[in-house]
């Protein structure tokens, strides 16, 4: 394994360099988003599929702002509350002709927006059979993540905390297990608050992170995009470097031999 942050990786046969997936929602303006995108170095950006406003003839679509850029589009199925709805949204997204990647996102609870594991599994299975490159957003449950992988997910995206909460990684133990066991890439999605969480996710063994709100709603989204990118690189490098095991008590990092003021007790008593 090369100890470099530039190590490439694969999702569904696509080679990626960046380990940062950037969401496109809630940015103060398209310009801010584009600058943040630049700073993030992201190659994959996410979208939502929504109804056209029939009363407004202005094109408020997101695509016009990123036209001509070499990006991978990852539309999500947000708004779906079951597998059927998610499959419908996925098909609509694919019909836009921008690739076959789909982030399965099925929430059945409006307060937590936590993903419905059963429906997520169902949708993943069906969409994988239909030839989609499926990246399900899932709970941070190791067994579920394994099932999703078996169902044909190209990558699995466990959440750190509920969407938009910024609570960070609530269950690092589980995320560590998920990253350890998985044979497909693990992308920590949702709930991250700032760069420190991104670094932690990468140290836990994640292959990448997806962030939207912590960047878009930061006081300076462009600076936060850069901070997150650096944190992801730092976390990844740290993971590869291999951290020391945790100990309960101190062990001096300075050589004890030859320190000043040491009392040579043994010699004095003999």
């Amino acid at each position: 394994m090369k100890t470099t942050v530039q190590d490439g990786w694969l999702i569904g046969g696509r080679k990626l360099k960046s380990r940062f997936f950037l969401g496109t929602g809630r940015f103060p303006s398209p310009t801010v988003f584009l600058s943040a995108l630049e700073e993030s170095g992201a190659e994959v950006i996410t979208f939502a599929v929504r109804r056209i406003n029939l009363d407004s003839y202005e094109d408020d679509g997101m695509l016009q702002h990123v036209a001509g850029r070499k990006l991978i589009f990852l539309p999500n199925t947000s708004g779906a509350s079951n597998a059927d709805e998610a499959v419908r949204i996925a098909r609509l997204a694919r019909a836009a002709g921008l690739g076959d990647w789909i982030k399965v996102e099925i929430s059945a609870d409006s307060r937590t927006l936590l993903p419905d594991p059963i429906e997520t599994l169902r949708a993943t299975e069906r969409l994988a059979k239909e030839g989609f490159t499926v990246l399900p957003y899932a709970s941070d449950d190791p067994m579920l993540c394994r099932r999703l992988e078996e169902a044909g997910a190209a990558a699995v995206m466990p959440g750190g905390a509920p969407i938009g909460t910024g609570l960070g990684i609530l269950n690092p133990y589980h995320l560590g297990l998920i990253a350890e066991q998985s044979r497909v890439p693990i992308i920590v999605d949702a709930g991250l608050g700032s760069a420190v969480d991104a670094a932690q996710a990468m140290e836990l063994g994640a292959d990448g992170i997806l962030a939207n709100t912590p960047v878009a709603n930061a006081v300076d989204p462009v600076a936060m995009a850069r901070a997150m990118r650096l944190a992801i690189e730092a976390g990844r490098l740290s993971r590869l470097a291999g951290r020391i095991p945790k100990k309960r008590y101190a062990s001096a990092s300075s050589e004890p031999e030859g320190r000043l003021f040491a009392t040579e007790v043994r010699e004095a008593t003999t």
Partner: peptide
Amino acid sequence: GEVVPRRLWGETSVRGGCAVEFVHFVGGG
């Protein structure tokens, strides 16, 4: 409930009571 590719819009008839969705991509995470 079925996607209709754009090239078929001209030959796809709409009938009373049908449900149509026109969608696009917007910002999202």
